[in-house]
């Protein structure tokens, strides 16, 4: 059984690292990195088989960050797992840094594929899942998408493909924080109902609170049991989760914290501790 308090502590640490690296960089995507922290923590510290000392290990599960702008989240979790030194996080977005503004698989271990242009990750995850099946591998593929991202048509092409090829080794997760750069998703271009759409495309859909660690791990376990169809975890989340001054604000989609904001945020996350 999962150690929930350990996972919650790792999630807290992740938030701290994300905010510190974003503040140092002076730009980047705060809101959408924080909203998916709990999901990504559960993946890397509970569910996925992976080896930070051997990033290309054949038997690993694959993670595709389709919402590539949440790169700080991916970098922070890889560093906390030990793929590279935590100090590297401080080079985010600087020239010659392996931590590009959006993930580049050629420059950093642990990144499966370069992402950043929205709508493309699910197709790659499908290809990985097909390839793993051909290789008779038991590895699974996880793909994290943004909710605004599903406005891209390619996502629905890929949704058809995953179902058509019965990719039960694939689990997509939508970080449903309800906000995109220009505002609320339903106002910019209505994406709802997401669950009904994926069900109609032949997916097994699990709806959860994306900040409830117990619900996240239960959903990940359930997805693994589903046969002959892909699974979608539709995770209701809050943009900027964990720091009150950022929560639910579209403004913090693509803006880094100021040093004053960082101080407030760290105080809240550290809950009086240092």
């Amino acid at each position: 059984m999962a150690d929930l308090s350990f996972l919650r502590e790792m999630a807290r640490k992740l938030r701290v690292e994300i905010l510190k690296m974003l503040t140092k960089a002076g730009s980047g995507h705060t809101g959408g990195s924080l909203s998916a922290v709990d999901i990504v923590t559960a993946l890397y510290f509970y569910k996925m088989r992976h080896d930070p000392k051997n990033p290309k290990w054949e038997g690993r599960d694959r993670f595709v960050l389709s919402k590539g702008h949440a790169a700080p989240l991916l970098y922070a979790v890889l560093a906390l797992c030990g793929y590279f030194d935590l100090s590297v996080l401080q080079t985010l977005r600087q020239i010659n840094s392996p931590l590009q503004g959006h993930p580049c698989c050629k420059s950093l271990p642990g990144i499966e594929v370069s992402t950043g242009s929205l709508g493309q990750g699910l197709s790659v995850a499908n290809g990985l899942a097909l390839g793993l099946k051909l290789n008779r591998s038991l590895s699974r593929v996880y793909c994290l998408l943004g909710d605004g991202e599903i406005q891209e048509g390619q996502v629905w092409e890929a949704a058809m493909t995953a179902s058509h090829y019965k990719l039960d080794n694939l689990c997509a997760i939508i970080d449903n924080n309800d906000l995109q750069i220009d505002g609320a998703c339903r106002e910019v271009m209505n994406i709802y109902p997401i669950d009904e759409k994926f069900k109609a495309f032949g997916w097994h859909v699990i709806k959860i609170d994306g900040h409830n660690m117990e619900e996240i791990i239960t959903a990940l376990d359930e997805a693994e049991q589903i046969m002959n169809k892909p699974s979608l975890i539709l995770a209701k989340t809050i943009k900027g989760k964990g720091v009150s001054i950022f929560e639910g604000k579209a403004k913090y989609h693509g803006v880094a914290p100021t040093s004053e904001e960082l101080e407030i945020a760290l105080k809240e996350l550290n809950n009086g501790k240092n």
Partner: peptide, 28 residues
Amino acid sequence: PERFFNMGIAEQDMMGTAAGLALSGKIP
């Protein structure tokens, strides 16, 4: 037949899927 994937009329998805297959060690 087991190594052929018809992707339907969806070229963007085809290229992405091909990338995924390549990254799993195939030559698509």
